[in-house]
Amino acid sequence: MSAHLAYVAASYGAALLVVAGLVSWVVLDARARRRELQALEEAGIRRRSAGGGAP
């Protein structure tokens, strides 16, 4: 029984790992892009259609 428990724990661990990996990828990527966007805007570069067009 205890051996089986290890498998259960391992699969929940794997789930945690995958979910944590995906979440951190999304969050970190978003943060980096947001910072980049801010840096560009501070440098005075605007989009062609500032205010709501497609980039």
Binding site: V27, L37, L40, R47
Partner: peptide
């Protein structure tokens, strides 16, 4: 729910990424 949360967030980031690329091009052209 997790899938859609991640998907939505990733899409937003991707739009930003393209916007950044467009702005960079714009800046280079300018």
């Amino acid at each position: 729910c997790l899938f859609f949360t991640l998907h939505l967030a990733a899409m937003r980031t991707e739009i930003w990424r393209r916007r950044i690329a467009a702005m960079r091009r714009q800046a280079a052209r300018g």
